[in-house]
Design a protein around this nucleic acid. Structure first.
Lengths: 245, 245
DNA sequence: TTTAAATGTCTATTGATATAGACAACCATA
DNA sequence: TATGGTTGTCTATATCAATAGACATTTAAA
């Protein structure tokens, strides 16, 4: 019974945005799969206890996101409802993990730099603070739709030129292979959630108030030596994580 | 450099709430640990590019949550900044996992019922749809502060009376032990994030727009037979998950 | 073709949000 | 005790968010 969720006033979050978030979640959960349509505006207004115009503002926002499309005389059609599953295992691979669920996977290199490890990066990569590291800023897309953006650090001495190789292969796994590391494993993953900041709202094509799932991950080679530390920021309404034990 | 995050207008999220969310995240990240205080209102107003009164609204909201306390003439002191770490492993235990990080752990039974498994519950517990299951609604607190609320299902035939045992022991692990299951393991965990609905806002003492980390988990006995399926909703600003592989 | 049901558009009004400026009250310290 | 820096309070104004009602337009089905 998605839709009975009441909505709260005077909280700094406009009613139309709360309603848009609820409807988006309901669509993702498959609440309207039978009809492929959102309930009529008057029905939603009744369910949420608001004016029809307020519901219209919410639906306009969802239409702007490309999630629904209103057709006069018929109703409001659902255009998109996917949520990708991202398995987190000892052999976590981004492209392979998402691969079967999308026709086209891409990994774009937005920026890169060689820099000195700060305390956090040094701790995760088990290096001395100040050691040279390579930082990549990447954006991953599934069927041309942004899924996550990530900041990734590598030890500079071992993986010199990985920026260029990643730009070419669009895959960390393939880049490692070309640089002489045929296999690696996931050692640790930390998961948190937060509101998207303005930068990620831009790159991931989100709306303010949108949620990010944030995964801090560290991969090692087969000897247990850290090879990669990354902070990935996923659009929470487009993915879920699965951990199999 | 937390604080340079710009803030967006006309998005349905009031500026004061966006700013409150940013400051809350910055406090959690330890941005103001040196002074133990939030920067002066005039400084924050300059950083966010808004009027000082708007910043005051944001700080008032954080004070309402008990995160900061304003002292006239001195500044705005940080009262709380903890984020509990919740390890997810094959031997995930809630109370033991959080235990060391809080002085007092409690698990309150809010509601319980015996009912018939719907399709989702039946699939996770590998039962026939319609089989009798026991459902518990629980609230977990660390040092009297709500951390998560959960809906949990058990096969009714095997764990009759678990509601009463849980109310007494306040722990799933102990309840299992009393009912003849000394050990169990975590089989699968699915993690998503969503906005809190009005019910969870109430029970977890959140503010609207707040984020939930949602973990769907299934535990089995040592023979691999499902014993428990749960949907836990964590206040995202109070916890993080860690997965060690 | 008529009708019912749905979205689209317009006007008007009220309350919440945000800005602006001025000044009071309080605290630490030079 | 005097000063600078901080939070607290007040008034005023403009814009956004939400409600209310009326009616137009489009679609599908009776």
């Amino acid at each position: 019974m998605a839709g009975l969720n009441q909505v709260q006033r005077q909280t700094g979050v406009a009613l139309w945005r709360q309603i848009a978030d609820r409807i988006r979640d309901a669509i993702s959960a498959g609440a309207y799969d039978e009809t492929g349509m959102v309930p009529p505006e008057t029905v939603l207004a009744l369910q949420f206890g608001v004016n029809r115009h307020t519901v219209r503002s919410a639906l306009a926002a969802l239409a702007q996101e490309g999630i629904v499309r209103a057709v006069q005389g018929r109703g409001t059609l659902i255009e998109r409802k996917e949520r990708l599953n991202f398995p987190i295992t000892r052999r976590t691979r981004f492209t392979a993990g998402i691969g079967a669920q999308a026709r086209e996977m891409r990994g774009l290199l937005l920026d890169h730099a060689e820099e000195r490890a700060d305390a956090d990066v040094a701790r995760w990569l088990r290096l001395k603070s100040g050691t040279a590291v390579i930082r990549l800023e990447t954006l991953r897309l599934a069927d041309k739709r942004p899924v996550s953006c990530a900041t990734t650090w590598f030890p500079a001495d071992r993986f010199a030129g990985i920026d260029e190789v990643y730009r070419k292969t669009e895959s960390i796994t393939k880049a490692f292979a070309e640089l002489g590391l045929p296999d690696y494993v996931r050692a640790t993953t930390e998961i948190t959630a937060a509101h998207a900041d303005s930068h990620d709202i831009g790159t991931l094509e989100l709306t303010p108030g949108a949620i990010l799932l944030i995964a801090k991950a560290m991969n090692t080679d087969l000897d247990g030596v850290p090879v990669q530390y990354s902070i990935s920021r996923f659009a929470a309404d487009r993915v879920q994580f699965t951990i199999e034990h």
